[in-house]
Amino acid sequence: MNMIVCVKQVLDPEAPPASFKIDPAAKRVILPPDVPPVISPFDEQAVEAALRIKDAKGGKITVLSMGANLQRDVVKKPLSMGADELVLLEDEAFVDGDSWSTAYALAMAIKKIGTYDLVFCGRQAADWDAGQVGAGIAEILGLPGVTVAKKIEVLDGKVRIERVVADGYEVIEAPLPCLVTVSNELGEPRYATIKGIMAAKKKEPIVWKPADIGVDPSQIGAKGRRINLLKLFQPVREGKCDIVQGETPEEAAANLALKLREAKIL
């Protein structure tokens, strides 16, 4: 089983909300210097999905990431969890893309990697929350795609996927090769082992430039965008919470009920 997992380095979504700042003029997030980036959490679950299949069936997992100044200790995390290879599309030309230019570059890199049965992505990245790149890669490569998966198994040359829907889940069968996007319902990704961390340290990623995957720089990153970001801003929160007091927690609780009644909410 040859598997490719696409992962994105993002601002840690668990960072304290107060540290989140944007530069509205530049339409950019100001990266807080004291908060290290992480692999987008759904992407880490995509790595876990691939590892579970490797555990059951064996196989090779190639991790693919894209950007500029990718921090090696961050993008190597999937290797320390048990993935086999790391390919980085690393160049300024890959930066600031939209779903289109991102999916295009990743699809071309996947073509270059060549052999694959399954391609995994997270259901959406923790920065732009678009959830489009997986579908885009599938469309560009002509693959069947199943999104928002919580369980993925390979049986008799087919893939069987539990897809999360509003009132439960659907069981879907698809032929290989197939693209699958993974959701948090899959469960917690495994921790890296000491052995894994040591092995990942020694492993050098393969770094590709636009020319290596045969793409024109005008089609990738910011230049390849089709959707325009007109404005980026932080919603204003009122922050006028009436903290209800009391001598004891029980009294405060009763006072809360009285306040809600007064305000005609109860």
Binding site: P13, P17, A126, D129, L229, L230, F233
Partner: peptide, 11 residues
């Protein structure tokens, strides 16, 4: 976007 920390307007 950014988990609801910001809003973006696209055209």
């Amino acid at each position: 976007v950014y988990g609801g920390n910001a809003l973006a307007v696209f055209t």
